[in-house]
Design a protein around this nucleic acid. Structure first.
Lengths: 106, 106
DNA sequence: TACATGTGTTATAAAATACTTACATATGAT
DNA sequence: ATCATATGTAAGTATTTTATAACACATGTA
């Protein structure tokens, strides 16, 4: 169960989830851990793009990764889902909005 | 309780929620309905910008609006929160991802 | 009449996000 | 050696989102 410490954390998760490719990534990973190149093929997107999306998911703590050696002897970076489960309602948004910052990113 | 008919609907809601200004708007409206100009002052943002955000929230069915005549005799557009409450987890994302489209917007 | 307060829109600029192309490195198999 | 597969990243482009500025019109009040 995801617990949000503040509004910025909530926003980070919502931003990570507000993209169709990233939802697809989560859907695939919900069937089991997978390594980057395989994921890219399965989703039909380029590896650099996949990296970008995985990075956002990782920053929001929705996925995590481990390096592993494949049977072939090659290194592979495996991604897996963290526990994604939370309730969202107006009360929560109201409470967390006090610790939500409105800022430029760069 | 929000029920998602398909992945695109889920995404629409997540996109609407993935912006700090819009979360603030929801937070303010959770304390009661309010009209646009008042909202803009309270949030410290311009009316055209507020319109943009309200439009996204309305498209996602998170808020709705009514025209009303103020005591002064002027027309005012009141916005109010719809019921915002849902659970999100990997199972739901997995199921809805099948009806989620990856597309350009314009 | 001029001012303050509403709604509503268009055009434009700025910032952030998404995506592509090209490259570098490493391992094992043919 | 060359091919196929893996990671990783830099740089440039395209698209989308966010924000601003400038209008239009209407009502009530000083």
């Amino acid at each position: 169960m995801i617990y949000f410490n503040n509004g910025d954390e909530l926003l980070l998760v919502l931003e990570a989830l507000s993209n169709p490719q990233r939802l697809k990534i989560i859907a695939v990973l919900s069937e089991g851990r997978q390594y980057v190149s395989h994921l890219a093929r399965e989703l039909g997107i380029s590896r650099p793009l996949l990296y970008l999306h995985l990075q956002k998911l990782e920053e929001a703590n929705l996925v995590s990764s481990d390096m592993e050696i494949l049977e072939t002897g090659q290194a592979a970076k495996y991604y897996q889902l963290n526990d994604i489960h939370f309730v969202l309602n107006e009360q929560l948004i109201h409470d967390l909005s006090k610790s939500l910052s409105i800022k430029r990113k760069k």
